[in-house]
Design a protein around this nucleic acid. Sequence first.
DNA 1: AAAGACACCTGTCCGC
DNA 2: TGCGGACAGGTGTCTT
Length: 270
Amino acid sequence: MPELPEVETVKRALSPHIEGKSIVHLKCFHTTLRYPLTDDLQQAVGQKIVSLKRRSKYLIMELEKGYLLLHLGMSGRLYWQPTSTPLQKHDHVEWTLNDQCIVRFQDPRRFGLVLWTDKPPYAHRLLAHLGPEPLSDEWQLETFYAALQKVNTPIKTALMHGKFVVGVGNIYANEALFASHIHPLTPALKVTKLQLEHLMHAVKRILQSAIASGGTTLKDFTSSDGSKGYFQTQLNVYKQTICSTCSHTLTTIKLGGRHTTFCENCQLIN
DNA sequence: AAAGACACCTGTCCGC
DNA sequence: TGCGGACAGGTGTCTT
């Protein structure tokens, strides 16, 4: 489900409903997601939610003392209800806030996570190694280019790796490479600095545009209020068959186990 | 040290 | 209609 724009959409939709409110109950209905749902999640109970932040595809619920780290994995949802409603299949964690509203974490495939930490979350082992945020000034052409000079792996794999930039998943990696006319199999160290500059601009533009559209709903993505995203209408290669620029038939290959679609006419390998 | 394979899960879709 | 198999928006960890 979620790449950066989808997680950002969830964050923006949920924040106004929960910030400044207190957690009255926290219930777990399943023992394990990516990691076990441990008893220390109860340390969040009684605390006020100071803010909801995003780092990469992680959500950080900042409490007065401590933090809850959340990740939606491939199929996770975080949905909000003004009052309690019947549990749905695959609801794993439920927060009840002091105004009686409910927030639930639902995740059929259970690749997501909810965990407690009382230490600064950016130093947590899951976040500490993450690369720069694509929509921030931390992501610089010079350092990106320099880092890739040692990387022989295809540029698409490098883009999705999370080491050089975070938040770019399969959909937006395909789209950004198409927009910047770079063949996904180009070895990262062979991408020129000029191409890399175009790629960075494409990533920023596409992510911002996807956020503005409320994310991409391919099958089942909805924001916390149940609304769908509309960026799928702007996809140029992902799940498409004909090149929107030259009308050639698009090529689909498998790269690192992920569907990779590109135009052999518009995206040349270096 | 880098790169690839694998693992974690369930739901859905497609072909037979 | 039923069944097997492939595949899906992610990412940490293990193996080469």
